[in-house]
Simulated assay, not measured.
Amino acid sequence: MIWDEAALKRLEAIPGFVRGMAKSKIEKAAQAAGETKVTVEFMDANKAKLMG
């Protein structure tokens, strides 16, 4: 999955011990939503679902 630069920076701010799991969860949610690119806007719009 392609990530835009701002989304990658936000991902890097996630603690390393959970970053891989978070990346996987975000990418799966983006694919399920029909997205071709992970953006900060997608992350913000789906924050509650991603964190739950």
Rank of each mutant, 00 (worst) to 15 (best):
M1C: 07
M1R: 10
M1Y: 09
I2N: 14
I2H: 14
D4Y: 01
D4H: 05
E5V: 06
A6W: 00
A6H: 07
L8F: 08
L8K: 12
L8E: 13
L8P: 00
L8T: 11
L8Q: 13
K9S: 11
K9L: 10
K9T: 09
K9N: 11
K9C: 09
R10M: 10
L11E: 05
L11D: 04
E12C: 03
E12N: 13
A13R: 15
A13P: 01
I14T: 14
P15K: 15
G16N: 13
G16D: 15
G16Y: 12
G16H: 11
F17N: 12
F17S: 14
F17Y: 13
F17V: 10
F17P: 06
V18K: 14
R19C: 05
G20I: 06
G20F: 08
G20R: 15
G20M: 12
G20D: 14
M21R: 15
M21Y: 11
M21N: 11
K23E: 13
K23M: 10
K23G: 08
S24A: 13
S24D: 15
S24P: 00
S24K: 14
K25T: 14
K25M: 12
I26G: 02
I26T: 08
E27H: 01
E27R: 07
K28S: 11
K28C: 01
K28H: 08
A29T: 01
A29M: 10
A29I: 02
A30F: 00
A30R: 04
A30G: 05
A30E: 06
Q31Y: 07
A32F: 00
A32P: 03
A32R: 13
A33D: 10
A33P: 06
A33R: 08
A33M: 06
G34L: 00
G34C: 02
E35G: 04
E35R: 12
E35A: 13
T36R: 09
T36E: 10
K37I: 09
K37M: 11
K37G: 00
V38M: 03
V38S: 03
T39W: 02
E41A: 08
F42V: 04
F42A: 03
F42W: 05
F42S: 04
D44W: 02
A45T: 09
A45N: 10
A45W: 05
A45L: 09
N46R: 05
N46T: 01
N46Q: 03
K47C: 01
K47W: 05
A48D: 12
A48N: 07
A48G: 05
K49S: 12
K49C: 01
K49E: 13
L50I: 07
G52S: 09
